[in-house]
Design a protein around this nucleic acid. Sequence first.
DNA 1: ACATTGATTACCT
DNA 2: GGTAATCAATGTC
Length: 187
Amino acid sequence: METEAYGGPDDLASHARFASTARNSAMSGPAGRAYVYLVYGMYDCLNVVTGPQGASGAVLIRAAAPIAGMDLMRAARMDHARRRRSAGAGGAGGAGAAAARIAALPDRHLARGPGLVGAAFGLDTGWTGTDLCDPASALRIEPGPTDVAAGEVAFGPRVGVGYAGPRWSAVPWRCWIADDPSVSPAR
DNA sequence: ACATTGATTACCT
DNA sequence: GGTAATCAATGTC
């Protein structure tokens, strides 16, 4: 698993750098809610709202290691690929080739990237506001099967935030479980 | 290495 | 009210 933290208006890499709007208002709402946004017009990214009420903050889920429901995740990934093809995206490849690739994907790669987490869970921006702490929610946070030792967590600079300037692109707010094969490839 | 995508924001009238 | 510029990425070449 792999995450990235995003701060409030001071953080130039955060959506909170904009004035409060319909899209990012969830970031300043109650903690523990979902904030799903569309990036590059194709990929839905899942964030967990953090911090006290009124302060903006969120944690982007960059990658996840599936522990159950891999067949459903695989099916969701194929749906996503099919929709992209009908819009004509992703280079010149065909949907059949994409489906074959997804079928051959190891379980641990089903959600290996921020956009892929959204695709594997079938998320879209409509999930924004879902209470991730409510056991009745279809999307929620639960304790994992094993604890992670502090020494297994690695920290590094965030990905793809060069536009925010050196001060914010260098801050080590990306964290992941060391040696976890589900983390997204290095960039 | 390169092409693809559309919601969202900021700016203009 | 309408338009241009922006982007926390992936997949195929």
